[in-house]
Write a protein that binds this DNA or RNA. Structure first.
Lengths: 299, 299
DNA sequence: TACAATCATGAAAATATATCATTATTATTC
DNA sequence: GAATAATAATGATATATTTTCATGATTGTA
């Protein structure tokens, strides 16, 4: 059976350090008889002598020397562990697992994460994008801690906070006939090639909020994974794409792009951050959301 | 303060392994409430949640995952330690520190040690030759465990056992005029160069038991550290030396040497092994002495 | 030889741990 | 959807362990 405990190793270490039970007891906040009894007990349980009385103090036996080296090896690891856990407890340390449900959110997230990592040097951030049961499911199953989504779902146990407003615009290239329009109407896209991220159209606002209500479909749809390639295609007149205005502006320095309002009023969107209500006390987690919201104006 | 104990790590490991308190309790010979209470207690002491109820079983939190990896790292070391200590307890494992007080004993010891290491595969042997307060002092101060000496000193707390009988002989080279004598008398050495190990003459039997009683001194004395060189010198007629007969015979194949009785009756010697009486129960130690004694006839 | 400093010991007190009996929660099944 | 089975949580009690206190034993020192 298991007899050797951390406390025993501590006693061995401290007695070896001080050379006497009385002195070691002082450091351990224990009396000399407490140590004497403790030693006697583990010696009899382990079946080995750990100390031998040498005059009026104690000297380690061979087994004792061996145990001391064990103690010196293991005790620091216990102490490190407790320090770490204290940081976990204080919410200073942890891993923030962020789940993403919208492609362009990724560009936004990148801008938030790096200053956040400065604020929380002991917090690691992990970004995930695929979820078996959707982003909400991933939140509930503790697969992620924060969900970045444009579609909040107000369910009990979850809390969503809007952190960023943006406008969804249509982006066209320099040779495109619509490039100087103030806005586009659905009918103007019926002959176009629409480039989108590879997600079902019911999750694309350009469909749900613009084309479908008008009963229009684009001539062709192409799915492309990355924003960069998507915009290269747009810039060369291979199609048009719907993206956040700020994102289009960001790429404007690299490609000649023209952002057009979708409809007369444009399509306003928000990014929300969702979390479990039970995570209320996790400081670095709640702070991520507050911090992200405070950055809104700057992006 | 220190709260994390080995037993806690064991609980964490076992619950993680089994996924439920009930099952883990079975393996740990504890009831489910015992584990429930234990967990609650360390969670409150550490200030972190380790598990979260997931349906009707438990899932580790981030802190819990971290603790589990700690447990997987540290627990095997505790187990290894207890196995080791059991071997120490059974006297299967240890280090036998052998002290030597006589030069030629070294040759004898070599013959004993190698079969002994076969008998006790987990015992290490360490041979030491210099002692600040003499061999006996080294035994008493636990600097060594066994003393190899031709001069036992019967003191309380020590036990000496004769393990080997031999005859001290004078060794001369092939050109030496005495080489065919049956024995030598002290006077025959008065013109000789006597080669000895570098120790005070009061610790050399050739002086104490042969030359001094007759009031004779050799013409010259040379001190040489190693037996090999000593015998090279003797073989080339540069002097004579006093050595155990068996040692002279061993070297006879390499050098042409002639062993002569010292006095009509010769000088009979014994090697003794001394140990502390308190080491009675150390099996491998007591066995070393018995084993050495049993080899007497073979050497 | 007395004295001071240490460890050892045994009984009692204090604390910690484990159990029992029960309740609460949550999947599963009919 | 209600009954059931499997699980964890809880609180009171019992048990075990650890610690202390008071004292005795040992040993080195003045």
């Amino acid at each position: 059976m298991s007899v050797l405990e951390r406390s025993h190793l501590k006693i061995i270490q401290e007695v070896a350090r001080e050379g006497s039970l009385t002195a070691a007891g002082l450091r351990l906040n224990l009396t000399q008889p407490a140590l004497s009894h403790a030693i006697r007990k583990i010696e009899s349980q382990l079946g080995v002598k750990i100390w031998r009385r040498e005059g009026r103090s104690l000297a380690l036996t061979q087994s004792g020397e061996w145990l001391l080296s064990l103690a010196n090896r293991l005790l620091p690891q216990f102490e490190l562990a407790e320090n770490r856990l204290e940081q976990f407890a204080n919410g200073e340390r942890g891993t923030l697992r962020i789940g993403m449900e919208c492609h362009p959110c990724y560009q936004w997230l990148l801008k938030v994460v790096s200053p956040y990592l400065e604020r929380w040097p002991k917090v690691d951030v992990d970004v995930r994008q695929k979820f078996q049961f959707g982003g909400i499911g991933a939140l509930f199953s503790n697969e992620i801690d924060i969900l970045v989504t444009p579609d909040p779902l107000y369910k009990p146990g979850l809390k969503f906070t809007p952190v960023f407003d943006y406008e969804l615009v249509l982006v066209v290239g320099a040779q495109h006939p619509l490039k100087d329009e103030k806005f586009v109407v659905p009918e103007q896209l019926s002959g176009e090639t629409l480039i989108t991220y590879p997600v079902p159209s019911e999750r694309l606002d350009i469909y749900t909020q613009f084309l479908q209500p008008a009963g229009i479909a684009p001539r062709q749809q192409k799915q492309i994974e990355t924003t960069d390639i998507m915009l290269v295609m747009v810039a060369h007149g291979r199609g048009v794409a719907a993206l956040p205005r700020w994102l289009a502006e960001e790429y404007a320095s690299r490609f000649e792009l023209y952002p057009l309002k979708l409809g007369k009023k444009g399509i306003a969107k928000q990014i929300f951050l969702g979390r479990r209500e039970t995570d209320e006390e996790i400081r670095y987690l709640v702070d991520f959301i507050e911090f992200a919201a405070s950055l809104d104006s700057e992006i």
